[in-house]
């Protein structure tokens, strides 16, 4: 793996996530007939937040301050394991898919703990919802990984997503469609997008992720937003490689294809958010169970 490739990978991982939020926002604005915030609004927000001071409640402990830091750090680490568009990831070893999934779980654990640390009943409720839904999303993700692992005969994310993906579509297209659909649901749930959660609501009893971060302010909130954007970016990269495994042969063209594909995927998410209404909270588990079944069905088709 060339050092230049690693640099491109890290730069994309650090710079592109807020841009995806901008593309989603623009798409939604377009559907609503508005001009919408500028494409780089998420960058401006982050810069503004990092320049601010923050207020920390005296009842909180170090857990509250660790939450955003761990959340961001785990998202960056997880981003190093996912290959971006056919390029090998900077770090990879056999079994790294389990570390990948549980890095997100670790970040979630600390975000939820930070929410509980404030002692607010409201944030406790959000934390409870968050962990309930993610424990339903986890089997869906793992069933999906199982299909990919079975197809490639390997347990490392790079080997699973890199080489054999284009050929796998011919061999097991039906399974991959199911896995892609299931991962898309997981992506929407985990990143609190409509129709499962609304990232823009701030004082409603129905929200999930947002409610946990009400007490954070300034740089801490900035880290949470940045970490959330990065999580979206990483999961989009995973889905994109499954849906569109194109390899042109030229390394730099591949990076271009990857960047354009990611923006297109962000537009798809924006379209989904524009044309769908938010589901009732009690329906979310039903959809997550359906996502698990889709992936499980993919495995059945593969093992048949």
């Amino acid at each position: 793996m060339l050092i230049s490739q690693i640099i491109v990978h890290v730069v994309l991982l650090l710079v592109m996530p807020p841009l995806l939020l901008g593309v989603i926002g623009k798409t939604k604005a377009l559907f609503g007939g508005r001009v919408g915030p500028p494409l780089f609004q998420a960058f401006f927000d982050l810069i503004k937040l990092f320049q601010k001071g923050s207020v920390i409640s005296s009842t909180t402990t170090w857990v509250f301050r660790a939450g955003p830091v761990v959340g961001l750090a785990t998202a960056i680490l997880a981003g190093l394991f996912i290959p971006f568009g056919g390029h090998a990831s900077p770090v990879s070893f056999s079994g790294d898919l389990i570390l990948f999934a549980y890095l997100f779980a670790l970040g979630r654990f600390f975000t939820a703990s930070a929410a509980l640390d404030t002692g607010s009943a409201f944030e406790g409720m959000g934390a409870a919802r968050e962990v309930t839904f993610s424990c339903l999303a986890e089997p869906a993700l793992f069933f999906g990984f199982l299909v990919l692992a079975k197809l490639s005969g390997s347990l490392s994310l790079t080997a699973m997503l890199d080489g054999p993906m284009p050929n796998s579509w011919g061999a097991a297209g039906a399974s991959l469609v199911l896995v892609a659909a299931s991962l898309f649901i997981v992506l929407l749930v985990e990143n609190s997008r409509i129709p499962f959660d609304d990232p823009n609501t701030h004082l409603e009893l129905t929200m999930i992720h947002e409610v946990m971060v009400l007490d954070h302010s300034g740089p801490a909130l900035g880290m949470i937003l940045y970490g959330a954007a990065m999580k979206l970016f990483v999961m989009c990269a995973l889905l994109l490689r499954i849906v569109a495994p194109f390899d042109s042969g030229n390394i730099w063209v591949d990076w271009g294809i990857f960047a354009v594909g990611m923006l297109a995927l962000a537009m798809v998410i924006g379209v989904v958010e524009s044309i769908m209404a938010r589901f009732k909270l009690t329906f979310v588990p039903t959809f997550l169970v359906a996502a698990c079944l889709l992936s499980a069905f993919g495995i059945i088709l593969l093992l048949r």
Binding site: P285, A290, L293, A296, F297, I300, R304
Partner: peptide, 21 residues
Amino acid sequence: GFIASLLLGGLGTALAVLFSN
């Protein structure tokens, strides 16, 4: 319930595949 019947349906499909083999 709906979730339970979804799971039962999934189980039924898995068993159907196993059985038909």
